[in-house]
């Protein structure tokens, strides 16, 4: 077991009205449990605003959850200050959606890559060691090695995303969180990156938490899919099961949209009650009931 999160809750408060007199509360992540095993890629799928990015940021401790526990690689990382969790955090990296904004335009590629070593400065203490590692990673993501003194704006979207992936790999992390990492790319590039990710996984023994709104993208690299809706995981099953026997109405809607480009007419509004839990429907197919 690489990562286990339990009962994670996170609400955001919003002040509205001229003087902020009305407070409203949005439950971004509502009582979520999730287990990720070593080597088992999980796709986290849901529409924008369903809380999937918030969940990813909570796992990385970029946000603090309101309650619940996160156990990563045997360490409870939901407690303690952000700075103290250095060891856990170097094994957990993230690739962001937009390759045009995830690289600082004023940094050349060498600076970008150097920044990836921040948490491993002790081990990678000389420049030549780091250089070697950078070159190794570059060849793994099919980038040429003579780009170190160039700037992000000189690269295409696909190349930038490769650079971002390379940056997240230099410390040999165990878990890589990909937040819509291919959504803003062209289909051809999308496919290349997805294939690259599949290769890297074998090479570096990585586990992915792949966040996307598109089931079809996730299908290619994930063994399991968790469907998220309005802050809750509504269905969790192996990829094949999700595609062949979707149980939850929302999963069906997602599937229709991704595969057949067809929208399901809103027949019934999906409502939650407090006592709903993920229940095993057999063969590890969980459904929120």
């Amino acid at each position: 077991m690489l990562l286990e999160i339990k009962n994670i809750k996170k609400s955001f408060y919003q002040k509205t009205g001229v003087f902020g007199e009305n407070k409203s509360c949005v439950k971004a992540v509502d009582n979520v449990d999730l287990v990720i095993n070593q080597g088992e890629n999980i796709g986290l799928v849901g529409e924008s605003g369903c809380g999937k990015t918030t969940l990813a940021r909570i796992i990385l401790r970029l946000l603090k959850s309101d309650s619940g526990s996160i156990n990563f690689d045997g360490v409870d990382i939901s407690q303690g200050s952000f700075g103290k969790l250095k060891h856990a955090r170097r094994n957990m990296q993230m690739v962001f959606q937009d390759p045009y904004s995830s690289l600082d335009p004023r940094f050349n590629i060498e600076n970008v890559m150097e920044e990836g070593f921040t948490l491993g400065k002790k081990e990678w203490n000389t420049k030549s060691k780091r250089r070697e590692k950078i070159f190794e990673t570059f060849s793994a993501v099919n980038l040429s090695t003579d780009i170190l003194d160039r700037y992000p704006h000189e690269f295409s979207g696909g190349e930038r995303q490769r650079i971002a992936i390379a940056r997240s790999l230099v410390l040999n992390p165990k878990l890589l969180i990909l937040d819509e990492a291919v959504s803003s790319l062209d289909v051809i590039i999308q496919k290349q990156i997805v294939e690259l990710l599949a290769d890297l996984r074998k090479k570096y023994d990585l586990t992915y938490l792949f966040i996307s709104h598109n089931l079809k993208v996730v299908q290619r690299i994930c063994q399991k899919i968790a469907v998220m809706y309005k802050g809750k995981i509504v269905e969790l099953a192996s990829t094949d099961d999700i595609f062949s026997y979707p149980l939850h109405p929302y999963t069906k809607e997602l599937l229709a949209a991704a595969v057949e480009y067809r929208s399901v007419k809103d027949n019934a509004k999906i409502e939650f009650t407090d006592d709903m839990r993920l229940i095993d429907m057999g063969k590890g197919h969980f459904l929120l009931k």
Partner: peptide, 11 residues
């Protein structure tokens, strides 16, 4: 747009 919304726009 999300795929679900995309499907609706297509329709």
């Amino acid at each position: 747009l999300d795929v679900t919304i995309q499907a609706k726009i297509i329709e």
